[in-house]
Amino acid sequence: MSSSPDAAVEVRDVVHTYGTGPAAVTALGPIDLHVPPGTFLVLVGASGCGKTTLLRLIAGFEQPTTGTVTAAGRPPVPGRNAGLVFQQPRLLPWKTVGGNVGLALRYAGVPRPERSSQVTTLLNRVGLPHVAGRRTWQLSGGQQQRVAIARALAVDNPLLLLDEPFAALDALTRERLQEDLRRVSVDTGRTCVFVTHSVDEAVFLGSRVIVLTSRPGRVALDVDVDLPRSGVEPDELRGSPEYAALRATIGHAVRAAAA
């Protein structure tokens, strides 16, 4: 069965099992997903439901036990088909902020004379002007995650994968970074797949939210988030009746799926 040419991500008949024999554990599936370009897809569910496993399959870090995964119509290749942001920033402490982003540009094949201006552009995009010369350990946790997002955006591909990147941050910083990421996704038009435990985060960030069942992870709910993605203040959006209704629907589905 061929993959759909208009899909940023296609997951077909996927089952993923860890181990073999009596000790084998099926973590995911069967599951099917069709993700059009430009979608901000959020995967939400209880711990152990297979969210990160599915993200790793899309990134190409693992191969499905059965079924197929494609990104832009091709089997994913780790580090090539997608920018990646993890729970921890994973920055190189011996390099400056600009050096970390510049290294990603180097691996992406950007000519050396062009890197400095692109570093500035990327750091401005994530709200970090004038920090290129600072060391990573001089930044707060939220600022380091912004650098990690800038580094992921340095790779010129249409897919961005994020595995609970704000989980370790305080509530205020988390909200600010959610707002930054939402703006960046609108500005760049990139397809995003975002993993979270937070229903509120899922509703705020996603243009589409998928709730996974407890192990093995399957689709319990697949809902489009019909909320404006630009031109509205974050507090106004979070306080709207439509936002509250979606949060209630998705929260109920998460609780039911984990039961």
Rank of each mutant, 00 (worst) to 15 (best):
S2L: 07
S3L: 07
D6S: 11
A7D: 11
A8I: 01
V11I: 14
V15M: 06
T20Q: 10
T26F: 08
T26G: 06
L28C: 04
I31L: 15
D32C: 03
L33C: 04
P36V: 09
P36C: 08
G38W: 01
L41Y: 09
L43S: 02
V44R: 00
G45W: 01
C49I: 03
G50C: 01
L54Q: 06
L54N: 06
L55V: 00
A59E: 11
E62P: 13
E62Y: 08
G67P: 02
G67I: 03
G67V: 02
T68S: 14
T70A: 08
A71V: 15
P75T: 12
P76I: 07
P78V: 07
P78I: 07
P78E: 04
R80H: 04
N81K: 05
A82M: 03
L84D: 03
L84I: 15
F86A: 14
P89G: 01
L91K: 02
P93F: 04
T96P: 15
V101A: 04
L103P: 11
A108D: 07
V110M: 07
P113W: 10
S117N: 06
V119H: 00
V119A: 05
G127Q: 05
L128P: 13
H130M: 02
A132F: 04
R134F: 10
R135M: 05
T136V: 15
Q138I: 04
G142Q: 03
Q143N: 13
Q145Y: 03
Q145K: 04
I149E: 01
A154K: 02
L160C: 14
L161H: 12
A167I: 01
L169R: 05
D170E: 11
A171V: 09
R174I: 10
R174C: 06
R176G: 01
R176E: 02
L177C: 09
Q178Y: 09
Q178F: 14
D180V: 10
R183P: 00
T188A: 04
R190S: 06
V193T: 02
V193Q: 00
D200K: 05
E201C: 08
F204V: 15
G206R: 02
G206C: 05
R208N: 00
I210F: 00
D222F: 01
D222S: 02
L227W: 11
L227H: 10
P228H: 13
G231L: 06
G231D: 09
E233T: 10
P234M: 14
D235I: 08
D235P: 00
D235H: 05
E236V: 04
G239F: 12
S240E: 15
I250V: 13
A253C: 07
R255K: 09
A256T: 13
A259T: 00
